[in-house]
Amino acid sequence: MGNFVNELQSKIERLENEINFKNGLISILSHDSKEMFGTFFLLIEELEQKNISEEDFFKLLPQIKRDAQKNLQTVQDSVTWLKTQYGEFKIKPVKIMVTDLFHYLEERYAAKLKEKNINFYFKGEHNAFLAGDRVLLEYVLDKIFNNAVKYSLPGQDIYLQAITKDDNVVLSVIDFGTGMNEKYLSEIYTYNIPIFLGTAGEKGVGLSLKIVKNFISLLHGDIQIISAENKGTTVSLFLRKFIE
């Protein structure tokens, strides 16, 4: 009886988490769309009624572009997540070499790393192998690494580190950027976290890490974030080691 109750409670918690996640997703999409299109509509109205000059209108376009990029990223993240919930999506566990993931990030972010003069290194076990879905894992690492670049200062280093522990590989993205204080760190997976600007003014919506957490659970792994203000952030993924 005790096992049945525990199993039932576990299922209820899982369902509550899924409902909260979906409600949060809808809330973010709704809020951002209203904010973006509402602001753009108001600006056009102000221009038509000659309350602002064309010069002032065009001065505001870079900010509108940044907001549009943020909202487009939100939609793309949402579509990626929806693919895991509906249709024919299935987890495909394959053997993945951690250094292949390093080279994936190195190539994908070559331009951004050069633009910010950030050095990217691999350290740890070069011959470590994971068992995971490559699509989900690349998405997860992409979002974590994007944050590391966003909140790093020019000239700083970022590491991808792999350490094998028993049947797990701990894959960590380590940066030495702006970091977060304890208050924001404790709220990182909620839907009331404020928007942080990157060190070059990049804007984030805060949705990606929530999807990352969801995807890591689909991979039967775990995620840990350690951060300190002005010292940097370490995001560690606890994933299954590939066993022959």
Rank of each mutant, 00 (worst) to 15 (best):
K123G: 05
L137G: 02
I96T: 05
G198M: 08
I118M: 09
G24T: 03
V79W: 07
Y86G: 00
T190I: 13
L207N: 07
E46I: 07
I91P: 03
K150L: 08
D142V: 12
V94W: 03
F238I: 15
N51D: 11
E138V: 14
N192M: 09
T190F: 05
S227C: 12
L60V: 05
Y121H: 14
E125F: 03
K90I: 14
K95I: 09
D56C: 00
V205M: 07
V75M: 12
P62C: 06
T99E: 09
K210M: 02
S152M: 10
M97K: 15
E125Q: 14
F129L: 12
N17F: 12
F58V: 01
M1P: 08
T84Y: 03
T190H: 11
Q161F: 04
N23H: 14
S27H: 15
I52A: 00
D133V: 03
S10K: 11
V169R: 02
I223S: 04
N3S: 15
V5A: 08
N20W: 04
N3I: 15
N3E: 07
A128E: 08
Q73E: 15
K92C: 10
K70C: 06
V173L: 08
N168S: 12
V212I: 05
I211T: 03
Y86H: 09
F58A: 04
G221Y: 09
L209T: 11
A68F: 07
A131L: 15
K11Q: 14
K150C: 14
K123C: 11
T178Q: 12
D32C: 06
F176S: 12
I223C: 05
E115Y: 14
K150G: 13
G155A: 07
I44D: 00
S227T: 14
A228M: 06
R66T: 09
G206K: 02
N6A: 07
I91Q: 02
E13M: 04
F58E: 09
S208M: 06
T84A: 14
G198S: 03
V235M: 04
S208Q: 06
L237Y: 02
R14L: 13
G177W: 01
Y189S: 02
T199Q: 10
L209A: 02
D166N: 15
N117G: 03
L42K: 08
R108C: 05
K210E: 04
T233M: 12
F242E: 07
M97T: 11
S10T: 14
F215N: 07
T190E: 12
E202S: 10
V5P: 01
L61D: 03
R240Y: 02
L47H: 06
E55L: 05
L185E: 12
F238C: 02
Q76S: 14
T234Y: 07
D157F: 15
R14Y: 15
H220A: 03
V173H: 01
